[in-house]
């Protein structure tokens, strides 16, 4: 209860209605913010006065080897993610194709490549020559596995194929999110199955698919660091090459962290623009 009950005269009510409104003070909020800011300041100070020589970080931030690593990281992200999305769409379409053999193969694919750790898959691809010294179609063409399975190819296959298993689930839920009436409307204007998928269903599924695929691209940027283990010259690998020589371990790890963060930040900005594009035509807003 307030100390201001409904007055008996409307004149009193009128007076009260014209008193000045004073917003709440939020004292608790301010105290809490101050504590958090203080802790953050302590953390920053720790890094500044810690055993890191920041000038060294600055010196290597734009070193040619590091820049080369950035390009290779981006290249691998694009290559593995493209393979992952292509496989993901293919597997998702197989899952809803109505062909029992294709559906079963798709299920097994997802089971295996989502089940095994990414690092392990990379190592398997990289060492594939131990199982299959040569590959090809007998009588048609053949090559030595060692020569083909470069760090780049092994990393792309390892990361892309396991990504395909995850992305197929995203694509599938995207396809299922589109109302059956949309397929029917497309068919009644004479579209074939492929036209319906390409023109009507996939663009609508995109709205559902873009946020998770965006997150997967961002995870992929970081996942490419696994390729350092099989000698692919991405950011982390190149930072390690430098610190094995000059022993500035922390400084170079800071350099690598900086670049991963920078890439992820840019990608997040791009992601939110794409999301806005695919949200066109929807009236619902997402605030609680």
């Amino acid at each position: 209860m307030t100390d201001t009950p409904l007055p008996h005269s409307s004149r009193d009510a009128h007076d009260i209605a014209h008193l000045q409104l004073v917003p709440r003070k939020h004292v608790g909020r301010k105290v809490f913010a101050a504590i958090v800011l203080f802790l953050v300041a302590l953390l920053i100070r720790a890094f500044v006065v810690g055993q890191i020589e920041w000038p060294v970080v600055g010196q290597f931030l734009f070193a040619p080897v590091i820049i080369q690593g950035i390009w290779n990281t981006l290249l691998m992200t694009v290559a593995a993610m493209s393979l992952g999305i292509a496989l993901g769409v293919l597997i998702a379409i197989m899952r809803i194709s109505g062909n029992p053999v294709l559906e079963y193969i798709a299920l097994v694919y997802v089971w295996i490549f989502r089940g095994a750790p990414a690092l392990l898959q990379l190592l398997l691809w990289f060492n594939l020559a131990l199982i299959f010294p040569t590959m090809g179609i007998p009588g048609l063409f053949e090559f030595n596995t060692v020569e083909v399975m470069t760090p780049f190819i092994a990393a792309m296959l390892g990361l892309g194929i396991q990504q395909g298993a995850y992305t197929s689930e995203v694509v599938r839920s995207g396809l299922l999110s589109v109302d059956a009436g949309q397929y029917e409307a497309a068919r009644t204007i004479g579209m074939t199955g492929m036209q319906t998928l390409r023109r009507i269903v996939l663009p609508q599924a995109m709205r559902v698919m873009v946020p998770p695929v965006g997150n997967e691209v961002i995870s992929m940027v970081k996942l490419t660091s696994l390729a350092s283990v099989i000698q692919y010259s991405e950011i982390l690998h190149n930072a390690q090459v430098i610190y094995y020589a000059n022993t500035r371990v922390l400084e170079l790890l800071m350099v690598a962290s900086f670049w991963y963060l920078a890439i992820v930040t840019v990608l997040s900005l791009i992601q939110s623009r794409i999301e806005r594009y695919y949200a066109r035509g929807t009236r619902g807003r997402t605030t609680i």
Partner: peptide, 15 residues
């Protein structure tokens, strides 16, 4: 192609 259809729930392409 030559048979049009109009649905109870419209089914316009929302995008």
């Amino acid at each position: 192609r030559s048979i049009g259809m109009v649905f109870q729930r419209f089914n316009l392409f929302p995008h």
